[in-house]
Each structure stands twice: as C-alpha cells, then as structure tokens.
C-alpha cells in the first residue's frame, strides 16, 4: 500500500507536469494546480503533531533514560481517581495498537490539569510523557496538542525531523529525473540535429543541478540535526558531490566552445555518458557501502520509506510524502518550461 501511494505521487507529478509539453506556455489552471499542491504539502507537513503509539513510546523510554516524548492517547474520564498514598492522579488511557491497547497514565500533581476534567474535551490528546517500566505506567509531563485531527508517527531517531523527509527526498529524486530528461533530450538532439532539443537538454541539466544543490543543502541541515555535523563523507554525500563535479564539467564544456553546432554535439554526448553514472551514484553505490543514510549495509533496517513494515509511516505521512513528489515534480516542470522558453527567445535574438 505504501509503495502504491508513493509511486502514484511520482506518476501524478510526471503526468501532470508533462501535460501539454514543455514548449508551450502552461495554462492558468495548471499553474494554480501547482500552487495548490505546494501549499497542501506545506500545510500537511507542518500542521500535524508528531505522536508515538504506546509500544513505540515504551520502547524509546526503556532505550533512552531521559526520554520525554509525544504519545497519542485517548482518555477514559470515568476511570479518573486520586491515589492518596503516592499523591497522584491515575487515569486509564487507550490507543489503536492491538497488542498494547490500554495503559495507565499517572499525573504527579495535586491539581488535575483543566483539560483532563470530564466534558472539557473529547478526550484525545498528544501528551508529553515517559514510560515508567517499574510502575508500569505512563508519567504525564505536559499537553502538546488537544484533539489533533491527524498525527505523524514517531520514527525512532527522527522524531520532528521526519518533516524534512517530505522535501529532501523528492528534491533528490527530481535531480535524478532532471538529469534523465537532459539525457533523453540529448539523444533526441543527436538523432534529429534539431537545436531545440539542445536547448531543452541544457535547461534540464541546469535545473537538475539546482535541485542537486538543494538536495545537498537540505541534507546538510538534516545531517547536522541527526548525525552531528554538516558534512560526514557518507557514501551518498560523497556520490552527490562527485555528481555535482560531473555536471559542473558539463557546463564547463559548454562554455568553452564557441561553435553552437559543436557545442550542442559534444555536450549531448557528454550528457548521455554523464547520466550513465547517475543510477550507480544514487541508487547502487550508497547501498553497497557502510554509511549513515538509511539503506546502507550496516543499517539493520532499510529506513522508514523503503521498509516493508507497513506501520513505520502512517497513512497521512505516506500521503504527504507522496504529495512531496507531486509538488516538487510540478515545480520542476514549471521551471523547465520557463527556462526552455527563455533560452529559445535568446536563441531568436542572437
């Protein structure tokens, strides 16, 4: 199901993006559709609070002694009672995990927070808690959100940073797609010798490079948060760096040649050969070496996205992630459209 949702986001982005080609100006409805998808992606990426289920929270509390994280709970107000011996409020709470449905929540305070009093709310909260395994209860710390409509799951080690995934991964994917387009247009140029294909190929390579740089920068920020430093020479970081050098050489080659015909021919051949390295650098090499990215050989899971465990990402997270692919693809196609038309205009003038 997860794969279907993500792939349909990718396909929707491709089909909608390629609609009406990239030569003609895009229709107004198309531009508004792009805008709609981008706004929806941003709102869905940031509005839902991150909340674990009981099992994840218990696991994290046992693994990390200082853990104090968000848990999604439904309270049963009728079970509320005050335990005078240890001066705490005790409340029965439940969630949707079949094996671990109910638990106790302890509130170590004489005054019960207003929100827990009966009829104050429908009883759905995201609470900051930790699990006390000796007393077998969740210990209340504070309320993070009341009656959340949606929540994102807690992926151990990622927590709030999971929101970056909705942008970082699609941007990296678009850099591959853009270089693929550059290769396809280069082949078309060599077959037909039509200068328009050369313009399309360079436009795609330029935007591909922009997206590669964006993927690198967003990745660096994420690396600082999760791995401690901006640059770690992880296989994927190294390979994207080499990829930038390869495509840097493409632009150097183009700017070194005066003759338009020769420039188009040589750079087309270079672009085709350059793309042959992309699948190895992006999909194969990082999975063969030890590294920090999910999916490296020393990683005992393949990461929340590729993992075959269905519940690593909840439905909303899958939809938002898939929307990320659609929106970023649409932005790419809009940029490609504008860049190609600009290049065509310039070629008319000179």
């Amino acid at each position: 199901m997860k794969a279907v949702i993500i792939v349909s986001g990718v396909v929707l982005g491709l089909v909608l993006g390629m609609y009406n080609g990239i030569e003609k100006p895009k229709a107004l409805w198309w531009k508004f559709t792009v805008f709609f998808f981008v706004i929806l992606l941003t709102v869905l990426s940031f509005l839902p609070p991150i909340a674990a289920n009981f099992a994840t929270s218990k696991y994290l509390s046992e693994a990390l002694p200082e853990y104090n994280g968000n848990v999604l709970v439904n309270i049963i107000p009728s079970t509320l009672k005050f335990d005078t011996a240890s001066s705490k409020w005790v409340l029965r709470i439940w969630n949707n995990v079949p094996k671990y449905k109910e638990a106790n929540l302890a509130i170590y305070s004489k005054d019960l927070p207003e929100e827990f009093k009966a009829s104050a709310s429908t009883g759905r909260f995201v609470l900051k808690t930790h699990f006390d395994s000796k007393k077998n209860e969740f210990v209340y710390h504070s309320i993070a959100s009341i009656n959340p409509i949606f929540t994102f799951p807690v992926v151990p080690g990622l927590e709030e940073q999971i929101r970056i995934m909705n942008y970082h991964v699609p941007v990296a994917w678009i850099s591959v797609l853009a270089y693929l387009f550059a290769m396809i247009y280069s082949i078309s140029y060599l077959r037909t010798r039509n200068m328009e294909y050369d313009l399309k190929a360079t436009a795609a390579a330029e935007i591909g490079t922009i997206f590669t740089i964006l993927a690198t920068v967003t990745g660096m920020i994420w690396a600082k948060l999760n791995w401690g430093s901006f640059w770690n020479w992880d296989p994927r970081e190294t390979s994207i760096f080499i990829l930038l050098l390869i495509y840097g050489a493409y632009f150097a080659l183009r700017s070194a040649l005066e003759n338009e015909e020769l420039k188009a021919r040589l750079s087309s051949v270079y672009s085709i050969i350059a793309f042959l390295t992309v699948p190895f650098f992006v999909f194969i090499l990082p999975r063969l070496l030890t590294g920090l990215h999910p999916g490296s050989v020393n990683d005992n899971s393949s990461g929340p996205v590729v993992s075959t465990q269905a519940n690593t990402l909840n439905f909303l997270q899958q939809i938002t992630f898939s929307l990320g692919f659609t929106s970023i693809s649409l932005i790419f196609f809009w940029m490609l459209n504008i860049r190609f038309r600009m290049k065509k205009l310039i070629s008319h003038i000179y």
């Binding site: 100006p25 531009k31 940029m335 504008i338």
Partner: peptide, 26 residues
C-alpha cells in the same frame, strides 16, 4: 512549528508570484 510553517508559506507565495510574473513577461 506553526511559525516555521507560516514562514515557508510566505516563501512559497513569494516564489509563486515571481514565477507567475516571469511566465507572463516571457
């Protein structure tokens, strides 16, 4: 988090407006 979201929305609106006008000029 909501402030971060608002800032990103402002950036998207700005970029969107820029792309719209650029497209029209071209």
């Amino acid at each position: 988090l909501y402030i971060v979201m608002a800032i990103i929305l402002v950036i998207w609106f700005g970029l969107g407006f820029y792309l719209f006008t650029l497209d029209r000029k071209i």
